[in-house]
Nucleic acid binder design. Structure first.
Lengths: 249, 249
DNA sequence: CGTTCTCTTGACAGCAGTCAAGACCCGTGG
DNA sequence: CCACGGGTCTTGACTGCTGTCAAGAGAACG
Protein backbone atom coordinates (compact mmCIF):
# COMPACT_ATOMS: atom_id res chain seq x y z
CA UNK A 1 0.00 0.00 0.00
CA UNK A 2 2.64 2.43 1.04
CA UNK A 3 4.73 1.33 -1.85
CA UNK A 4 2.14 2.12 -4.42
CA UNK A 5 1.70 5.46 -2.81
CA UNK A 6 5.37 6.20 -3.17
CA UNK A 7 5.29 5.16 -6.75
CA UNK A 8 2.43 7.46 -7.38
CA UNK A 9 4.53 10.27 -6.04
CA UNK A 10 7.39 9.28 -8.27
CA UNK A 11 5.17 9.21 -11.32
CA UNK A 12 3.94 12.63 -10.47
CA UNK A 13 7.35 14.10 -10.00
CA UNK A 14 9.09 12.51 -12.92
CA UNK A 15 6.27 13.00 -15.41
CA UNK A 16 7.88 15.39 -17.89
CA UNK A 17 6.17 18.67 -18.61
CA UNK A 18 5.70 17.88 -22.27
CA UNK A 19 2.53 19.82 -22.54
CA UNK A 20 3.65 23.05 -21.02
CA UNK A 21 0.92 22.95 -18.46
CA UNK A 22 1.61 21.29 -15.16
CA UNK A 23 1.15 17.59 -15.81
CA UNK A 24 -1.34 16.74 -13.12
CA UNK A 25 -3.48 19.78 -13.24
CA UNK A 26 -6.55 17.69 -12.64
CA UNK A 27 -5.24 16.37 -9.39
CA UNK A 28 -4.30 19.88 -8.41
CA UNK A 29 -8.01 20.58 -8.28
CA UNK A 30 -8.42 18.00 -5.59
CA UNK A 31 -5.38 18.93 -3.61
CA UNK A 32 -7.15 21.48 -1.47
CA UNK A 33 -10.07 19.26 -0.65
CA UNK A 34 -10.17 17.63 2.77
CA UNK A 35 -9.26 13.97 2.96
CA UNK A 36 -12.01 11.56 3.95
CA UNK A 37 -11.60 8.03 5.22
CA UNK A 38 -13.43 4.90 4.15
CA UNK A 39 -13.20 1.69 6.12
CA UNK A 40 -12.64 -1.55 4.24
CA UNK A 41 -15.91 -2.72 2.76
CA UNK A 42 -17.58 0.66 3.02
CA UNK A 43 -19.49 1.99 0.00
CA UNK A 44 -18.63 5.27 -1.67
CA UNK A 45 -21.74 5.36 -3.84
CA UNK A 46 -24.19 3.05 -5.54
CA UNK A 47 -25.06 2.44 -9.15
CA UNK A 48 -27.97 4.68 -10.05
CA UNK A 49 -27.30 7.30 -7.38
CA UNK A 50 -27.34 10.88 -8.56
CA UNK A 51 -23.73 11.61 -9.46
CA UNK A 52 -23.01 14.58 -7.28
CA UNK A 53 -19.28 14.11 -6.79
CA UNK A 54 -16.05 12.94 -8.31
CA UNK A 55 -13.40 11.36 -6.14
CA UNK A 56 -9.67 11.05 -6.10
CA UNK A 57 -8.17 8.02 -4.42
CA UNK A 58 -5.45 9.29 -2.12
CA UNK A 59 -4.53 5.96 -0.59
CA UNK A 60 -5.99 2.48 -0.68
CA UNK A 61 -8.08 0.69 -3.30
CA UNK A 62 -11.65 0.61 -4.53
CA UNK A 63 -13.64 -1.88 -6.54
CA UNK A 64 -16.27 -0.65 -8.96
CA UNK A 65 -18.97 -3.09 -9.93
CA UNK A 66 -22.44 -3.77 -11.20
CA UNK A 67 -24.95 -6.24 -9.86
CA UNK A 68 -27.34 -7.99 -12.21
CA UNK A 69 -30.70 -9.61 -11.71
CA UNK A 70 -30.07 -12.66 -9.58
CA UNK A 71 -27.21 -11.20 -7.61
CA UNK A 72 -24.35 -11.92 -9.97
CA UNK A 73 -21.66 -9.31 -9.51
CA UNK A 74 -19.34 -7.96 -12.19
CA UNK A 75 -16.34 -5.94 -11.12
CA UNK A 76 -15.54 -3.62 -14.00
CA UNK A 77 -12.38 -2.22 -12.48
CA UNK A 78 -10.16 -1.53 -9.52
CA UNK A 79 -8.98 1.93 -8.54
CA UNK A 80 -5.82 2.80 -6.67
CA UNK A 81 -3.97 5.79 -5.32
CA UNK A 82 -3.85 8.53 -7.92
CA UNK A 83 -6.90 7.37 -9.85
CA UNK A 84 -9.94 9.55 -10.27
CA UNK A 85 -13.42 8.05 -10.00
CA UNK A 86 -16.22 9.23 -12.16
CA UNK A 87 -14.69 11.19 -15.00
CA UNK A 88 -16.92 9.29 -17.37
CA UNK A 89 -20.01 10.23 -15.46
CA UNK A 90 -23.45 10.84 -16.65
CA UNK A 91 -26.06 12.27 -14.34
CA UNK A 92 -26.18 9.03 -12.40
CA UNK A 93 -23.38 6.68 -11.43
CA UNK A 94 -23.00 3.76 -13.82
CA UNK A 95 -21.65 1.48 -11.11
CA UNK A 96 -21.19 1.08 -7.39
CA UNK A 97 -17.89 1.77 -5.64
CA UNK A 98 -16.62 0.14 -2.44
CA UNK A 99 -13.40 0.32 -0.51
CA UNK A 100 -11.40 -2.90 -0.65
CA UNK A 101 -9.16 -1.87 2.24
CA UNK A 102 -9.15 1.20 4.46
CA UNK A 103 -8.99 3.98 1.93
CA UNK A 104 -8.56 7.73 1.93
CA UNK A 105 -10.20 9.88 -0.72
CA UNK A 106 -10.80 13.48 -1.68
CA UNK A 107 -14.15 14.65 -2.97
CA UNK A 108 -15.01 17.22 -5.58
CA UNK A 109 -18.43 18.51 -6.51
CA UNK A 110 -19.41 17.54 -10.00
CA UNK A 111 -20.91 20.93 -10.67
CA UNK A 112 -17.80 22.75 -9.57
CA UNK A 113 -15.69 20.29 -11.49
CA UNK A 114 -17.52 20.98 -14.71
CA UNK A 115 -17.27 24.70 -14.14
CA UNK A 116 -13.54 24.39 -13.56
CA UNK A 117 -13.06 22.37 -16.71
CA UNK A 118 -15.11 24.84 -18.70
CA UNK A 119 -13.13 27.72 -17.25
CA UNK A 120 -9.67 26.22 -17.57
CA UNK A 121 -8.83 24.87 -21.04
CA UNK A 122 -5.66 23.21 -19.80
CA UNK A 123 -7.73 20.66 -17.94
CA UNK A 124 -9.62 19.41 -20.95
CA UNK A 125 -6.89 17.35 -22.59
CA UNK A 126 -6.35 15.55 -19.34
CA UNK A 127 -10.02 14.82 -18.83
CA UNK A 128 -10.23 13.60 -22.39
CA UNK A 129 -7.10 11.55 -22.02
CA UNK A 130 -8.35 9.85 -18.87
CA UNK A 131 -11.59 9.02 -20.59
CA UNK A 132 -9.74 7.47 -23.49
CA UNK A 133 -7.51 5.47 -21.19
CA UNK A 134 -10.62 4.18 -19.46
CA UNK A 135 -12.07 3.27 -22.84
CA UNK A 136 -8.92 1.47 -23.92
CA UNK A 137 -8.90 -0.47 -20.66
CA UNK A 138 -12.54 -1.39 -21.13
CA UNK A 139 -11.78 -2.76 -24.58
CA UNK A 140 -8.87 -4.81 -23.33
CA UNK A 141 -11.18 -6.19 -20.70
CA UNK A 142 -13.73 -7.11 -23.36
CA UNK A 143 -11.02 -9.04 -25.18
CA UNK A 144 -10.10 -10.82 -21.98
CA UNK A 145 -13.67 -11.73 -21.11
CA UNK A 146 -14.60 -12.66 -24.62
CA UNK A 147 -11.83 -14.92 -25.76
CA UNK A 148 -9.31 -15.77 -23.07
CA UNK A 149 -9.27 -18.92 -20.98
CA UNK A 150 -8.80 -18.97 -17.23
CA UNK A 151 -5.00 -19.14 -17.34
CA UNK A 152 -4.71 -16.32 -19.85
CA UNK A 153 -7.07 -14.18 -17.81
CA UNK A 154 -5.14 -14.62 -14.62
CA UNK A 155 -1.77 -14.04 -16.29
CA UNK A 156 -3.10 -10.89 -17.94
CA UNK A 157 -4.41 -9.72 -14.59
CA UNK A 158 -1.12 -10.36 -12.81
CA UNK A 159 0.82 -8.59 -15.56
CA UNK A 160 -1.38 -5.55 -15.23
CA UNK A 161 -0.66 -5.45 -11.53
CA UNK A 162 3.05 -5.70 -12.23
CA UNK A 163 2.82 -2.77 -14.61
CA UNK A 164 1.12 -0.67 -11.95
CA UNK A 165 3.68 -1.65 -9.40
CA UNK A 166 7.16 -0.54 -8.41
CA UNK A 167 8.70 -2.05 -11.53
CA UNK A 168 10.52 -5.31 -11.74
CA UNK A 169 13.99 -5.73 -10.42
CA UNK A 170 15.78 -8.06 -12.76
CA UNK A 171 13.07 -10.43 -13.87
CA UNK A 172 11.28 -10.56 -10.54
CA UNK A 173 8.54 -8.33 -9.20
CA UNK A 174 6.31 -8.37 -6.18
CA UNK A 175 2.71 -7.44 -6.76
CA UNK A 176 0.23 -6.49 -4.08
CA UNK A 177 -3.24 -7.96 -4.41
CA UNK A 178 -5.34 -6.09 -1.86
CA UNK A 179 -8.55 -7.60 -3.22
CA UNK A 180 -9.92 -11.02 -2.29
CA UNK A 181 -10.03 -14.05 -4.57
CA UNK A 182 -13.73 -13.42 -5.01
CA UNK A 183 -12.97 -9.90 -6.23
CA UNK A 184 -10.48 -11.27 -8.72
CA UNK A 185 -12.97 -13.88 -9.86
CA UNK A 186 -15.72 -11.32 -10.36
CA UNK A 187 -13.29 -9.13 -12.26
CA UNK A 188 -12.07 -11.91 -14.55
CA UNK A 189 -15.44 -13.53 -15.15
CA UNK A 190 -14.45 -16.73 -13.34
CA UNK A 191 -15.34 -18.45 -10.08
CA UNK A 192 -13.29 -18.20 -6.95
CA UNK A 193 -12.39 -21.89 -7.29
CA UNK A 194 -11.03 -21.49 -10.78
CA UNK A 195 -8.94 -18.50 -9.70
CA UNK A 196 -7.57 -20.48 -6.82
CA UNK A 197 -6.80 -23.56 -8.91
CA UNK A 198 -5.13 -21.52 -11.63
CA UNK A 199 -2.94 -19.70 -9.15
CA UNK A 200 -1.94 -23.02 -7.68
CA UNK A 201 -0.92 -24.27 -11.13
CA UNK A 202 1.13 -21.16 -11.85
CA UNK A 203 2.81 -21.60 -8.50
CA UNK A 204 3.57 -25.27 -9.15
CA UNK A 205 5.21 -24.32 -12.42
CA UNK A 206 7.39 -21.81 -10.64
CA UNK A 207 6.00 -18.84 -12.52
CA UNK A 208 4.69 -17.11 -9.44
CA UNK A 209 5.11 -17.57 -5.72
CA UNK A 210 2.53 -16.57 -3.14
CA UNK A 211 3.51 -14.29 -0.30
CA UNK A 212 0.60 -14.56 2.05
CA UNK A 213 -2.85 -13.98 0.65
CA UNK A 214 -2.45 -10.52 -0.68
CA UNK A 215 0.86 -10.52 -2.49
CA UNK A 216 2.58 -12.56 -5.16
CA UNK A 217 6.15 -12.73 -6.33
CA UNK A 218 6.41 -12.98 -10.11
CA UNK A 219 9.31 -15.30 -10.84
CA UNK A 220 9.10 -15.58 -14.64
CA UNK A 221 7.82 -12.39 -16.11
CA UNK A 222 8.43 -13.49 -19.70
CA UNK A 223 6.48 -16.70 -19.31
CA UNK A 224 3.64 -14.80 -17.70
CA UNK A 225 3.57 -12.50 -20.72
CA UNK A 226 3.50 -15.44 -23.12
CA UNK A 227 0.70 -17.11 -21.21
CA UNK A 228 -1.34 -13.91 -21.15
CA UNK A 229 -2.27 -14.35 -24.79
CA UNK A 230 -1.38 -10.78 -25.64
CA UNK A 231 1.84 -11.56 -27.48
CA UNK A 232 1.78 -10.45 -31.08
CA UNK A 233 3.55 -13.47 -32.42
CA UNK A 234 5.19 -16.64 -31.30
CA UNK A 235 6.97 -19.30 -33.20
CA UNK A 236 8.69 -21.97 -31.19
CA UNK A 237 9.44 -19.54 -28.42
CA UNK A 238 6.73 -21.31 -26.51
CA UNK A 239 9.43 -23.81 -25.71
CA UNK A 240 10.60 -21.24 -23.20
CA UNK A 241 7.60 -22.13 -21.13
CA UNK A 242 8.47 -24.61 -18.47
CA UNK A 243 5.94 -27.19 -17.53
CA UNK A 244 8.10 -28.51 -14.75
CA UNK A 245 7.91 -27.10 -11.27
CA UNK A 246 10.57 -24.47 -10.89
CA UNK A 247 12.57 -23.57 -7.84
CA UNK A 248 10.39 -21.35 -5.77
CA UNK A 249 11.18 -19.91 -2.35
CA UNK B 1 -27.16 1.91 -25.11
CA UNK B 2 -29.80 1.51 -22.47
CA UNK B 3 -32.79 3.71 -22.69
CA UNK B 4 -32.39 4.91 -19.17
CA UNK B 5 -28.95 6.13 -19.98
CA UNK B 6 -30.14 7.96 -23.00
CA UNK B 7 -32.76 9.67 -20.94
CA UNK B 8 -30.17 10.96 -18.53
CA UNK B 9 -27.94 12.04 -21.30
CA UNK B 10 -30.71 13.88 -23.05
CA UNK B 11 -31.59 15.73 -19.91
CA UNK B 12 -28.01 16.65 -19.46
CA UNK B 13 -27.04 17.66 -22.93
CA UNK B 14 -30.10 19.23 -24.37
CA UNK B 15 -30.79 21.26 -21.30
CA UNK B 16 -30.87 24.68 -22.98
CA UNK B 17 -30.06 26.65 -19.88
CA UNK B 18 -26.74 24.90 -19.52
CA UNK B 19 -25.48 24.60 -23.04
CA UNK B 20 -27.91 26.17 -25.47
CA UNK B 21 -26.59 24.14 -28.37
CA UNK B 22 -28.42 22.44 -31.17
CA UNK B 23 -28.50 18.77 -30.32
CA UNK B 24 -26.69 17.37 -33.33
CA UNK B 25 -24.09 20.03 -33.79
CA UNK B 26 -21.45 17.36 -34.12
CA UNK B 27 -23.02 15.81 -37.14
CA UNK B 28 -23.34 19.27 -38.65
CA UNK B 29 -19.56 19.28 -38.86
CA UNK B 30 -19.63 16.28 -41.14
CA UNK B 31 -22.51 17.43 -43.24
CA UNK B 32 -20.36 19.29 -45.74
CA UNK B 33 -17.87 16.49 -46.21
CA UNK B 34 -18.11 14.40 -49.37
CA UNK B 35 -19.62 10.96 -49.04
CA UNK B 36 -17.32 7.99 -49.63
CA UNK B 37 -18.34 4.43 -50.38
CA UNK B 38 -17.06 1.23 -48.84
CA UNK B 39 -17.86 -2.15 -50.34
CA UNK B 40 -18.93 -4.95 -48.00
CA UNK B 41 -15.89 -6.44 -46.34
CA UNK B 42 -13.67 -3.46 -47.06
CA UNK B 43 -11.51 -2.04 -44.26
CA UNK B 44 -11.78 1.53 -43.10
CA UNK B 45 -8.66 1.42 -40.94
CA UNK B 46 -6.63 -1.00 -38.88
CA UNK B 47 -5.82 -1.22 -35.21
CA UNK B 48 -2.56 0.60 -34.62
CA UNK B 49 -2.81 2.88 -37.65
CA UNK B 50 -2.13 6.54 -36.99
CA UNK B 51 -5.56 8.00 -36.24
CA UNK B 52 -5.79 10.71 -38.86
CA UNK B 53 -9.55 10.81 -39.31
CA UNK B 54 -12.92 10.44 -37.65
CA UNK B 55 -15.83 9.04 -39.61
CA UNK B 56 -19.57 9.39 -39.65
CA UNK B 57 -21.57 6.43 -40.85
CA UNK B 58 -24.08 7.79 -43.36
CA UNK B 59 -25.58 4.49 -44.40
CA UNK B 60 -24.74 0.86 -43.78
CA UNK B 61 -22.92 -0.86 -40.92
CA UNK B 62 -19.39 -1.38 -39.66
CA UNK B 63 -17.85 -3.84 -37.28
CA UNK B 64 -15.00 -2.75 -35.04
CA UNK B 65 -12.75 -5.45 -33.68
CA UNK B 66 -9.43 -6.51 -32.28
CA UNK B 67 -7.39 -9.55 -33.21
CA UNK B 68 -5.29 -11.30 -30.59
CA UNK B 69 -2.26 -13.54 -30.81
CA UNK B 70 -3.43 -16.72 -32.48
CA UNK B 71 -6.04 -15.10 -34.67
CA UNK B 72 -8.94 -14.96 -32.25
CA UNK B 73 -11.17 -12.03 -33.14
CA UNK B 74 -13.18 -9.92 -30.72
CA UNK B 75 -15.80 -7.59 -32.11
CA UNK B 76 -16.16 -4.77 -29.63
CA UNK B 77 -19.05 -3.08 -31.38
CA UNK B 78 -21.17 -2.45 -34.42
CA UNK B 79 -21.75 0.97 -35.91
CA UNK B 80 -24.74 2.07 -37.92
CA UNK B 81 -26.08 5.12 -39.70
CA UNK B 82 -25.67 8.20 -37.54
CA UNK B 83 -22.84 6.83 -35.42
CA UNK B 84 -19.47 8.49 -35.29
CA UNK B 85 -16.30 6.39 -35.31
CA UNK B 86 -13.30 7.37 -33.30
CA UNK B 87 -14.43 9.97 -30.79
CA UNK B 88 -12.51 8.10 -28.16
CA UNK B 89 -9.32 8.19 -30.13
CA UNK B 90 -5.82 8.39 -28.99
CA UNK B 91 -3.04 8.94 -31.50
CA UNK B 92 -3.56 5.48 -32.95
CA UNK B 93 -6.73 3.54 -33.59
CA UNK B 94 -7.56 1.11 -30.80
CA UNK B 95 -9.31 -1.27 -33.16
CA UNK B 96 -9.88 -2.14 -36.80
CA UNK B 97 -13.03 -1.16 -38.66
CA UNK B 98 -14.61 -3.00 -41.60
CA UNK B 99 -17.78 -2.55 -43.57
CA UNK B 100 -20.31 -5.33 -42.97
CA UNK B 101 -22.37 -4.36 -46.00
CA UNK B 102 -21.91 -1.69 -48.65
CA UNK B 103 -21.55 1.41 -46.55
CA UNK B 104 -21.35 5.15 -47.10
CA UNK B 105 -19.32 7.35 -44.78
CA UNK B 106 -18.11 10.89 -44.33
CA UNK B 107 -14.59 11.65 -43.22
CA UNK B 108 -13.26 14.38 -41.01
CA UNK B 109 -9.64 15.20 -40.26
CA UNK B 110 -8.82 14.61 -36.65
CA UNK B 111 -6.73 17.74 -36.47
CA UNK B 112 -9.53 19.88 -37.87
CA UNK B 113 -11.98 18.14 -35.63
CA UNK B 114 -10.00 18.97 -32.53
CA UNK B 115 -9.60 22.53 -33.64
CA UNK B 116 -13.33 22.81 -34.19
CA UNK B 117 -14.10 21.39 -30.79
CA UNK B 118 -11.60 23.75 -29.18
CA UNK B 119 -13.08 26.69 -31.06
CA UNK B 120 -16.71 25.88 -30.53
CA UNK B 121 -17.66 25.19 -26.90
CA UNK B 122 -21.10 24.00 -27.91
CA UNK B 123 -19.60 20.86 -29.35
CA UNK B 124 -17.90 19.74 -26.19
CA UNK B 125 -20.89 18.45 -24.28
CA UNK B 126 -21.82 16.30 -27.23
CA UNK B 127 -18.33 14.87 -27.61
CA UNK B 128 -18.26 14.19 -23.91
CA UNK B 129 -21.69 12.67 -23.99
CA UNK B 130 -20.82 10.34 -26.86
CA UNK B 131 -17.74 9.21 -25.01
CA UNK B 132 -19.80 8.47 -21.94
CA UNK B 133 -22.37 6.56 -23.96
CA UNK B 134 -19.55 4.51 -25.43
CA UNK B 135 -18.23 3.87 -21.94
CA UNK B 136 -21.64 2.84 -20.65
CA UNK B 137 -22.03 0.48 -23.59
CA UNK B 138 -18.60 -0.99 -22.92
CA UNK B 139 -19.55 -1.67 -19.33
CA UNK B 140 -22.79 -3.35 -20.30
CA UNK B 141 -20.78 -5.48 -22.67
CA UNK B 142 -18.40 -6.44 -19.87
CA UNK B 143 -21.39 -7.57 -17.81
CA UNK B 144 -22.65 -9.61 -20.73
CA UNK B 145 -19.29 -11.26 -21.41
CA UNK B 146 -18.49 -11.80 -17.78
CA UNK B 147 -21.60 -13.35 -16.36
CA UNK B 148 -24.26 -14.13 -18.92
CA UNK B 149 -24.88 -17.51 -20.51
CA UNK B 150 -25.41 -18.04 -24.22
CA UNK B 151 -29.16 -17.52 -24.14
CA UNK B 152 -28.93 -14.35 -22.07
CA UNK B 153 -26.26 -12.98 -24.39
CA UNK B 154 -28.28 -13.55 -27.50
CA UNK B 155 -31.48 -12.16 -25.99
CA UNK B 156 -29.60 -9.08 -24.81
CA UNK B 157 -28.15 -8.66 -28.27
CA UNK B 158 -31.53 -8.98 -29.97
CA UNK B 159 -33.09 -6.51 -27.55
CA UNK B 160 -30.41 -3.97 -28.30
CA UNK B 161 -31.14 -4.30 -31.98
CA UNK B 162 -34.83 -3.78 -31.30
CA UNK B 163 -34.06 -0.59 -29.38
CA UNK B 164 -32.04 0.74 -32.28
CA UNK B 165 -34.78 -0.14 -34.72
CA UNK B 166 -37.96 1.53 -35.91
CA UNK B 167 -39.69 0.75 -32.65
CA UNK B 168 -42.04 -2.09 -32.01
CA UNK B 169 -45.56 -2.11 -33.28
CA UNK B 170 -47.69 -3.71 -30.64
CA UNK B 171 -45.48 -6.34 -29.13
CA UNK B 172 -43.81 -7.32 -32.38
CA UNK B 173 -40.73 -5.86 -34.00
CA UNK B 174 -38.58 -6.75 -36.95
CA UNK B 175 -34.86 -6.39 -36.46
CA UNK B 176 -32.31 -6.33 -39.22
CA UNK B 177 -29.13 -8.30 -38.62
CA UNK B 178 -26.77 -7.24 -41.39
CA UNK B 179 -23.85 -9.06 -39.76
CA UNK B 180 -23.13 -12.77 -40.15
CA UNK B 181 -23.49 -15.39 -37.44
CA UNK B 182 -19.74 -15.33 -37.06
CA UNK B 183 -19.86 -11.60 -36.39
CA UNK B 184 -22.51 -12.13 -33.76
CA UNK B 185 -20.49 -14.94 -32.20
CA UNK B 186 -17.33 -12.83 -32.07
CA UNK B 187 -19.33 -10.00 -30.54
CA UNK B 188 -20.98 -12.14 -27.88
CA UNK B 189 -17.94 -14.22 -27.00
CA UNK B 190 -19.49 -17.42 -28.32
CA UNK B 191 -18.95 -19.75 -31.25
CA UNK B 192 -20.97 -19.65 -34.41
CA UNK B 193 -22.50 -23.02 -33.55
CA UNK B 194 -23.72 -21.85 -30.17
CA UNK B 195 -25.27 -18.74 -31.71
CA UNK B 196 -27.01 -20.88 -34.28
CA UNK B 197 -28.28 -23.41 -31.77
CA UNK B 198 -29.52 -20.72 -29.41
CA UNK B 199 -31.40 -18.94 -32.17
CA UNK B 200 -32.99 -22.23 -33.12
CA UNK B 201 -34.16 -22.74 -29.54
CA UNK B 202 -35.62 -19.24 -29.33
CA UNK B 203 -37.42 -19.90 -32.61
CA UNK B 204 -38.80 -23.23 -31.43
CA UNK B 205 -40.20 -21.52 -28.36
CA UNK B 206 -41.94 -18.96 -30.53
CA UNK B 207 -40.03 -16.03 -29.09
CA UNK B 208 -38.46 -15.04 -32.38
CA UNK B 209 -39.02 -15.98 -35.98
CA UNK B 210 -36.34 -15.86 -38.64
CA UNK B 211 -36.97 -13.90 -41.81
CA UNK B 212 -34.17 -15.04 -44.06
CA UNK B 213 -30.65 -14.87 -42.69
CA UNK B 214 -30.42 -11.21 -41.93
CA UNK B 215 -33.65 -10.35 -40.21
CA UNK B 216 -35.67 -11.63 -37.26
CA UNK B 217 -39.19 -10.99 -36.13
CA UNK B 218 -39.43 -10.62 -32.35
CA UNK B 219 -42.68 -12.27 -31.33
CA UNK B 220 -42.47 -12.00 -27.55
CA UNK B 221 -40.64 -8.90 -26.53
CA UNK B 222 -41.39 -9.32 -22.84
CA UNK B 223 -40.05 -12.85 -22.72
CA UNK B 224 -36.93 -11.74 -24.54
CA UNK B 225 -36.42 -9.06 -21.90
CA UNK B 226 -36.83 -11.58 -19.09
CA UNK B 227 -34.39 -13.97 -20.69
CA UNK B 228 -31.82 -11.23 -21.20
CA UNK B 229 -30.95 -11.27 -17.52
CA UNK B 230 -31.19 -7.50 -17.20
CA UNK B 231 -34.45 -7.45 -15.27
CA UNK B 232 -34.14 -5.86 -11.88
CA UNK B 233 -36.40 -8.28 -10.10
CA UNK B 234 -38.61 -11.24 -10.74
CA UNK B 235 -40.77 -13.28 -8.52
CA UNK B 236 -42.93 -15.90 -10.14
CA UNK B 237 -43.33 -13.78 -13.23
CA UNK B 238 -40.97 -16.22 -14.88
CA UNK B 239 -44.05 -18.33 -15.34
CA UNK B 240 -44.84 -16.02 -18.21
CA UNK B 241 -42.04 -17.68 -20.10
CA UNK B 242 -43.33 -20.37 -22.37
CA UNK B 243 -41.28 -23.45 -22.89
CA UNK B 244 -43.66 -24.81 -25.46
CA UNK B 245 -43.26 -24.06 -29.12
CA UNK B 246 -45.29 -21.03 -30.06
CA UNK B 247 -47.27 -20.47 -33.22
CA UNK B 248 -44.91 -19.39 -35.91
CA UNK B 249 -45.90 -19.68 -39.56
C1' DC C 1 -8.90 -20.21 22.01
C1' DG C 2 -12.86 -20.43 19.45
C1' DT C 3 -15.58 -18.27 15.78
C1' DT C 4 -15.89 -16.68 11.29
C1' DC C 5 -14.36 -15.67 6.93
C1' DT C 6 -11.26 -16.77 3.20
C1' DC C 7 -8.91 -19.89 0.54
C1' DT C 8 -7.70 -24.47 -1.28
C1' DT C 9 -8.66 -28.93 -2.99
C1' DG C 10 -11.43 -32.79 -4.74
C1' DA C 11 -15.35 -35.07 -7.14
C1' DC C 12 -18.66 -34.46 -10.36
C1' DA C 13 -21.81 -32.11 -13.75
C1' DG C 14 -23.09 -29.25 -17.48
C1' DC C 15 -22.65 -25.63 -20.79
C1' DA C 16 -20.41 -24.34 -24.51
C1' DG C 17 -16.49 -25.60 -27.71
C1' DT C 18 -14.70 -28.74 -31.23
C1' DC C 19 -15.08 -31.63 -35.06
C1' DA C 20 -17.72 -33.20 -38.78
C1' DA C 21 -21.39 -33.62 -42.10
C1' DG C 22 -24.97 -31.91 -44.55
C1' DA C 23 -28.50 -28.21 -45.77
C1' DC C 24 -29.30 -23.79 -47.48
C1' DC C 25 -28.38 -19.56 -49.96
C1' DC C 26 -26.70 -16.96 -53.70
C1' DG C 27 -23.98 -15.37 -57.40
C1' DT C 28 -21.90 -17.11 -61.66
C1' DG C 29 -21.73 -19.30 -65.84
C1' DG C 30 -23.24 -22.85 -68.95
C1' DC D 1 -33.49 -21.76 -66.74
C1' DC D 2 -30.74 -24.78 -64.41
C1' DA D 3 -26.31 -26.56 -62.77
C1' DC D 4 -22.44 -25.62 -60.24
C1' DG D 5 -19.47 -23.96 -56.54
C1' DG D 6 -18.31 -21.51 -52.55
C1' DG D 7 -19.68 -19.49 -48.58
C1' DT D 8 -22.93 -19.45 -44.71
C1' DC D 9 -25.74 -21.70 -41.61
C1' DT D 10 -27.68 -25.66 -39.08
C1' DT D 11 -27.45 -29.87 -36.69
C1' DG D 12 -25.40 -33.88 -34.30
C1' DA D 13 -21.93 -36.42 -31.53
C1' DC D 14 -18.50 -35.92 -28.46
C1' DT D 15 -14.98 -33.49 -25.49
C1' DG D 16 -13.32 -30.57 -22.06
C1' DC D 17 -13.02 -26.43 -19.45
C1' DT D 18 -15.06 -24.26 -16.02
C1' DG D 19 -18.89 -24.20 -12.68
C1' DT D 20 -21.12 -26.40 -8.74
C1' DC D 21 -21.18 -28.66 -4.51
C1' DA D 22 -18.83 -30.06 -0.53
C1' DA D 23 -15.27 -30.59 2.88
C1' DG D 24 -11.42 -29.14 5.15
C1' DA D 25 -7.26 -26.10 5.87
C1' DG D 26 -5.60 -21.68 6.95
C1' DA D 27 -5.98 -16.63 8.58
C1' DA D 28 -7.91 -12.99 11.02
C1' DC D 29 -10.13 -11.21 14.95
C1' DG D 30 -12.14 -10.67 19.26
Amino acid sequence: MLQTNNVHHLKEVTSPALFGAEPDSLKALFRKQPVECLAAGQSLFFEGDAAKHLFEVVEGSLRIFKIISDGRRVITGFLHAGDIVGVSLKSHYLYSAEAIVDTRIRRFSRKTFEAEVARCPDLRPEVFSRLCDEMAAAQDQMVLLSRKNAEERLCTFLLRQVQRGPGLRGNIAIVELPMTRLDIADYLGLTIETVSRTMTKLTQRGIICSIGRHAVRVMKHGVLAQLSGDDEYYGDERSQISYAAGNHH
